[in-house]
């Protein structure tokens, strides 16, 4: 698929900005799920700056696409994307995880403009997405419902209750994306509790399944086009292969960065790497 080179470049730059925001936010806060934020940053970028039909000037627009970050702990890039999109001022990012800030450790829809629903407890996003998808069909609306889950999150039983129900209700307006960074808090997903064979599992539950490199903007763009253009009455799932801590060499594939804030030196080095990647884009 031929892609607009300018679009790809623009999105790659935006992904770098979001990565930089995430590092700065966690440095300032002294906390944050940096690794699981960086892993889905490219997906977040393509969604918020290309695919999602949303309007920061009218966050409650009835026909907007509904996005749910089911892996709520991965909120660093979400906050950055919402601010850069214009849902709230960029300065708010400096208040991440501080007392009285709207930007808590997990997204709160009553506090953060642009967040559809509060998340944080794992396994909740897909059931909520089903409700939103049924609502769209009942209202004859064309909006799409998209949720991003973690691969460790798939160990929650409610994901499979929802997998059953979404296929049962033939929700072709629902797309799930699994951020498969292969690591969870206690170690590699396959060692803690193996979830494979993922593709077969979702297929057997009645879903249309795609796989992609979740850190490759071009692949994300073309996969999402394919998935949103798919015509059968089935819910869709994308298994996105990603790298935990993607974009910062010493964080990549290191489980310790699941929940850890960089110190000043680490943050400086991380930003140097991100800026270097940015320079190469110019």
């Amino acid at each position: 698929m031929v892609q607009d080179a300018e679009l790809v470049k623009r999105l790659k730059k935006m992904a770098a900005f979001i990565r930089r925001d995430s590092i700065q936010m966690s440095l300032k806060a002294g906390c944050g799920h940096v690794g699981p934020g960086l892993s889905w940053t490219d997906i977040c970028t393509v969604l918020f700056f290309h695919q999602l039909r949303i309007d920061p000037k009218n966050p409650d627009w009835l026909n907007r696409d509904r996005f749910i970050l089911s892996k709520g702990h991965g909120c660093l890039p979400l906050y950055s994307a919402l601010a850069r999109k214009g849902f709230f001022p960029m300065e708010k990012l400096d208040t991440f995880c501080q007392l009285d800030s709207c930007l808590g450790g997990h997204p709160d829809c009553l506090a953060v403009p642009g967040v559809e629903i509060s998340t944080g407890s794992l396994g909740h996003g897909l059931p909520i997405a089903i409700g939103m998808a049924i609502a769209a069909k009942s209202d004859n609306k064309k909006y799409r419902v998209i949720t991003v889950m973690g691969d460790g999150e798939l160990q929650e039983g409610t994901v499979w209750e929802a997998a059953m129900a979404a296929a049962h209700y033939r929700l072709d307006n629902l797309t799930g994306i699994i951020d498969c960074n292969k690591l969870e808090i206690d170690g590699p997903v396959k060692e803690v509790m193996n979830i494979e064979p993922l593709k077969d599992k979702w297929k057997s539950f009645g879903w249309y399944v795609e796989e992609m490199d979740g850190n490759d903007i071009e692949d994300i763009l073309s996969t999402l086009e394919r998935v949103f253009g798919y015509k059968e009455e089935k819910p869709r799932i994308i298994i996105a292969h990603t790298i935990k801590g993607k974009g910062v060499s010493f964080m990549e594939n290191q489980v310790v960065w699941h929940y850890k804030a960089p110190d000043n030196d680490e943050a400086r080095q991380a930003i140097r790497e991100i800026d270097l990647a940015l320079t190469k884009l110019k």
């Binding site: 997405a129 089903i130 209202d139 409610t158």
Partner: peptide, 22 residues
Amino acid sequence: FNAGVAEQNMMGIAAGLSTSGF
């Protein structure tokens, strides 16, 4: 809407429905 024997999923579906005015 029958969620089958899946009360947790049922609560989530209800949550999603409520966000669109149902």
